[in-house]
């Protein structure tokens, strides 16, 4: 460590700007996809909207498990609490889903903090923490499924209105407004992720993920920040749940709290890039259309895939193959691996 270097190294502080590369990328991506619903057919638009929902769900998981290092296997709980909060308020009291969304975010955050506190109180970490989050989500599913107060297994149908209403988040089938609404919400979630990553909370979350004891030894109140990260993550998961319900106009315990939802939340960032801002978006672009692509193949397979006609489950197989390939060749996910290569150059 040459003493002369000490005088000559320029300070890296000027690199910290508000409008950084991530913000520029966000503006470009949003601007590029705004006209999309005007160009897509109705079926394609619903795939595009599913990408938006997947991305929100993936971003939610990524905050808690990617940045925060707390592996969640129960993200369906946050999604479901958002979906059910807004549905109950809308169906029973006619309250706007926007207000339902705020309530859902709060409910999910409070639930997340309570479950998190219980887990940390009993020093659950790693696999045990993941299993606890799964168990709590399953518990919620069973409670909702057997509780007449929330329509048990029947769930909720969102009452249809005539015409369009941004206030009630409802538009005629095929309206581009659904996509734009989802895009607004996703933009908010991405913005929240960018702000989180550069915030003190985000930096503390990464420090805790890297080494909890070392983080504590430099004065970071570990428990408080872990719970804060869970609350942020849960709130974003709830937004995904609210939008899902408003788009599909239906929710039931399995769709809201089912284990499959939690698995989706994990797979999206794992494929895209865990602990990166853009990984969940990349993952959702790849995974969300998989059902539709496989359904199309199975409906009318090319000659060499004739044996697949009438079969089902191809999407699950492709999921599995994709995950195996990503884990084998891109262990940091697609975006994560690309980012790694670029920054190492």
């Amino acid at each position: 460590m040459s003493e002369t270097l000490i005088q000559t190294v320029p300070s890296p502080l000027h690199k910290k700007k508000f409008f950084d590369g991530n913000m520029v990328a966000l503006v470009i991506i949003v601007a590029a996809v705004v006209p999309l619903p005007l160009l897509l057919e109705s079926g394609q638009e619903s795939v595009a909207i599913r990408i938006l929902i997947f991305a929100m769900l993936g971003l939610s998981w990524n905050i808690m498990s990617g940045f925060g290092g707390m592996f969640s296997f129960g993200h369906a709980a946050y999604f479901g609490l958002g979906a059910y909060s807004s549905s109950i308020l809308l169906v029973n009291f006619g309250i706007s889903p926007w207000i339902g969304m705020v309530v859902g975010m709060a409910v999910a955050a409070i639930y997340g903090v309570i479950v998190g506190w219980l887990c940390f109180r009993y020093k659950l970490k790693g696999t045990y923490f993941a299993l606890a989050t799964f168990a709590f989500a399953e518990m919620l599913r069973i409670i909702v499924q057997s509780s007449q107060a929330v329509n048990a297994a029947v769930g909720y149908n969102v009452p249809l209105i005539k015409g369009s209403s941004w206030w009630l988040m409802q538009f005629p089938a095929g309206s581009p407004n659904y996509f734009w609404l989802g895009l607004i919400l996703l933009t908010g979630c991405l913005l929240a992720t960018i702000m989180f990553a550069r915030s003190k909370t985000g930096q503390f979350a990464v420090a805790i993920r890297e080494d909890e004891e070392a983080a504590s030894s430099i004065g970071i109140p570990v428990l408080r920040y872990k719970l804060k990260v869970i609350a942020i993550s849960a709130s974003i998961g709830a937004v995904a749940g609210v939008f899902y319900t408003q788009f599909y106009l239906f929710i039931d315990p399995e769709l809201a709290f089912g284990a499959y939802r939690s698995i989706e939340a994990i797979l999206i960032p794992v494929v895209g890039g865990v602990g990166t801002i853009w990984g969940p978006l990349v993952g959702s672009v790849l995974l969300a259309p998989l059902n539709d692509i496989t359904a199309a193949i199975l409906r009318n397979p090319p000659p060499f895939l004739d044996f697949l006609q009438g079969q089902s489950g191809l999407d699950v197989m492709l999921y599995a193959v994709l995950i195996i390939l990503v884990i084998l060749f891109l262990p940091k996910g697609i975006f994560g691996s690309i980012k790694d290569k670029v920054t190492r150059k």
Binding site: P12, Q203, F204, V206, A207, E210, D211, E213, A214, A215, I218, I220, G275
Partner: peptide, 14 residues
């Protein structure tokens, strides 16, 4: 026990 994914500057800034 550095925070491995952070830069040296970030380690101290945190």
């Amino acid at each position: 026990r550095p925070f491995g994914s952070m830069t040296v500057l970030e380690n101290v800034a945190v």
